[in-house]
Amino acid sequence: MRTELPVLKAADFASDQDVRWCPGCGDYSILAQMKKTLPSLGMPREKIVFISGIGCSSRFPYYMNTYGIHSIHGRAPAFATGLKAVRPDLMVWVITGDGDGLSIGGNHLMHAIRRNLDINIVMFNNRIYGLTKGQYSPTSPIGKKTKTSPMGAIDNPLHPLSIAIGCEATFVARSVDTHIKHLGGVLQRAAEHRGTSFVEVYQNCNVFNDGAFDYVTDRQTKSDQTIELEHGAPLVFGKNRERGIRLNGLEPEIVELGDRYSESDLLVHDEAAVEPSLAYLLSRLRYEDGFPEPIGVLRAVDAPRYEEVLNTQVTAARDQRGEGDLTSLFNSGETWTVT
């Protein structure tokens, strides 16, 4: 007998709950792309679990017609760890934000990534605390004036991709809420990757931090200020693909393509490089330093998955010692009988 999997559509993934994000929020677009992407993965809805922490982005699971946990602030990766350890058959998504994932939950993010469970972490980075109404976040730039930093933030910001690569994440990518097609493609790649996928999505908070990512979304400037990564291709950018990035020693530099430099002089992107240094270097290309910011997959390498290794150990233990038997356990070692 052959059972046909029902063909699902984006609408099948919508729950019956009203979406309560502010009108114009970048989260809507991410939700739409997720619903659009999931049907193509061939995974039935009941096998998918969304786990979030606290924050605007963390309302996400309520809007998906899958299983879901809206957990507590910053801890979503830890819930995902426990779930995936006992249920490797499930597809687990962690939805987090810059405050949730990098501030209160920084520790859990780091450890989930280094364990390399087969989960997908999507971080909505809006560089602000939205749900608590506009305090600076761990990704807010220095000098950012908010309610809790009226004279400007003085904390050096964290950079999500650099953190993820520092933890040797096996899949690291970035996309933008309004780059609909690109975002869908990145989510799809993240889902298909076996191991922990970390995706940063630049997400506009139109209420508390509007325009934070204008430099990557503005039609006039985006091709000069972003660089779309392509595996095996040189790092070329600009409206007319007239510029590129080359390495000068260990330092990246922008060069004009033409008489002096050609594409063959440029850094060639290799997302599969086992050594994470180049991916880290890409994660450090920042707009405020005069560089275009990379969009796309920075790193995609294969490494053992935590839950698989755990299962291997369980199987090996059973093979070596036999299926655990309580009676023989209780009677192991020294015993005596009273008559």
Binding site: I72, A78, A317, R321
Partner: peptide, 23 residues
Amino acid sequence: KHFNVRTVQAEDEIASMCSAIGA
């Protein structure tokens, strides 16, 4: 492990509690 026990030495006490809820 031969009793099908799976243990996670979590990164902290909070994570250990959360991993138990996930499981």
